[in-house]
């Protein structure tokens, strides 16, 4: 399902102009990372995808649905949104109930809903925590519950707002697995992240936002190679990209294997 954003502007009631004319197309099954400095408008932008915010001017459509014409409740069947802070979305008495809430609410048949819940719990490695109250879990696992509860809704589009914040290496790898699996299923994943190394290793397309506008948009290695432009939005290229540059390697490095091959040739 295509996301089409056409000259989107958004001004908060306080007068803060957060988005200043964004036009983008995101194709079905794309894995897109959105980067940019704090306050660049990343969260404001993705909150338009499921209608939590409506454009001040311009338009965004999810498939053939223009978001102004549909409620967030309706859009939730197309766009799943995992909040930055899991505590803003968890409320059920146990993990199983939490993960089941979304699919039940979307009206899937029971057998289908059960299947979706089972798959989401397995993917996020939550099976042994089904009966635990989410608030008895560590913030790490609460994050996985938040992920599972959205994945279980089986929406064609999923948004992750800073999924790796405060996560250790093991859990970051777990989240990368989840994203890879969603890719295999053909779902569109849009992720806001400051973890540029994670971004380089897991996303094909990167959009850099700066002050409410698109600064760069393209394939990861094309975007990450432009350190000077990225600096305008306070993003530093990944560690290996910087290292490759300092070593004078011709190609833009985004992954470890690519780096090792490049220095072996050199």
């Amino acid at each position: 399902m295509k996301i089409i954003i056409n000259n989107l502007h958004f001004t908060y009631p306080t007068g803060l102009e957060a988005l200043k004319g964004i036009s983008l197309t995101i194709n079905p099954g794309e894995q897109v990372a959105i980067v940019g400095q704090n306050g660049a408008g990343k969260t404001t932008l993705v909150r338009h995808f499921n209608g939590l915010l409506k454009p001040t001017s311009g338009a965004i459509s999810i498939g053939e649905w223009e978001t102004t014409k549909y409620s967030t409740a309706k859009l939730a069947s197309r766009v799943g949104y995992v909040f930055q802070n899991p505590d803003e979305q968890l409320f059920s008495r146990d993990v199983l109930a939490e993960v089941s809430f979304g699919p039940r609410n979307l009206g899937y048949e029971k057998s289908k809903a059960d299947e979706l819940v089972k798959r989401a719990m397995a993917l996020t490695e939550l099976n042994d925590k089904a009966e635990t109250n989410p608030y008895d879990l560590s913030p790490t696992w609460r994050k996985m519950v938040a992920l599972a509860s959205i994945i279980a809704m089986d929406t064609p589009i999923i948004i992750f707002d800073e999924p790796t914040t405060g996560q250790d290496a093991v859990n970051v790898a777990r989240i990368a697995n989840v994203i890879a699996e969603l890719k295999r299923e053909g779902r569109t994943v849009v992720t806001i992240t400051h973890d540029i190394d994670f971004c380089a290793e897991n996303f094909e397309r990167i959009i850099a936002l700066a002050k409410g506008q698109v600064l760069l948009d393209g394939l990861a290695r094309d975007v990450l190679g432009q350190g000077e432009i990225l600096a305008q939005t306070y993003v530093e290229p990944p560690q290996l990209t910087r290292l490759g540059k300092r070593l004078g390697l011709k190609e833009t490095i985004t992954k470890q294997d690519q780096f090792l091959n490049a220095i072996a040739r050199d």
Binding site: D168, A169, V172, Q239, L240, Q256, F259, L260, I263, A264
Partner: peptide, 20 residues
Amino acid sequence: NGFGISRYTSAAREARKRGL
């Protein structure tokens, strides 16, 4: 023990195995 290490450390460890 499942700690995160820098990409520099990780790349150099791999490079060492290949004599680089």
